[in-house]
Simulated scan of single mutants.
Amino acid sequence: MSALSKKITTALVGISVTAAIAGCAATETDSSSPPPPSNTTGAGPSGSPSGSTTSGGPYKDGKYTMDGEYGTRGSSIGVSVTLEDDEITTVDVTPHATDETSLGLQRRFADAVPTLVVGKDIDDVDLDRVAGNSHTPAGFNDALEKIKAEASS
């Protein structure tokens, strides 16, 4: 393996996103995406939208908070998103792990997520492996499915 290949491989290890937008895969170098927001707090009760309830698409605008579950040991992660016209405008991921190793992985995941999902249509987001996490994205995707169900009712 050449030195350049090793550098590229090293740079890409741990981060991949499966996000189809109009049949094309999104890249992380898309300069049209807005900068990642600061992590926010103050979400309404889990599963409850807060703020506006108008919408230009199938989902009601507002802020939604859900826990997503993954794995066989009852692992979970908290996810809050703000939707405007079906687009994720803010995201906040809250680690729930108590084990030091798992907590570290969830924190790295939480730090990486905003640049991957903010500015994307919620229906086009399906995270795979992010920041060395292969299981935590499943919890994030589970929370997004719950959020979509809540925002469409």
Rank of each mutant, 00 (worst) to 15 (best):
D61M: 00
D61V: 01
D61P: 02
G62I: 05
G62Y: 02
K63G: 08
K63M: 03
Y64W: 14
Y64G: 10
Y64C: 04
Y64L: 02
T65E: 02
T65K: 01
M66V: 00
D67E: 14
D67W: 06
G68M: 12
G68H: 15
E69A: 03
E69W: 06
Y70R: 05
Y70F: 15
G71P: 11
G71N: 13
G71V: 08
G71A: 11
G71K: 12
R73K: 12
R73T: 09
G74D: 15
G74V: 11
G74H: 14
G74W: 07
G74T: 12
G74S: 13
S75H: 12
S75A: 10
G78D: 07
G78V: 03
G78E: 11
V79F: 08
V79C: 10
V81P: 04
V81E: 08
T82W: 11
T82G: 12
L83P: 05
E84A: 14
D85H: 14
E87F: 12
I88P: 03
I88L: 07
V91A: 14
V91Q: 07
D92K: 09
T94G: 04
P95M: 07
P95Y: 12
D99K: 02
D99L: 04
E100I: 09
E100L: 12
E100D: 04
T101L: 04
T101V: 04
S102Y: 05
L103T: 04
G104Q: 04
L105M: 01
L105D: 03
L105K: 07
Q106M: 00
R107F: 01
R107N: 13
R107D: 14
R107S: 11
R108P: 00
F109I: 09
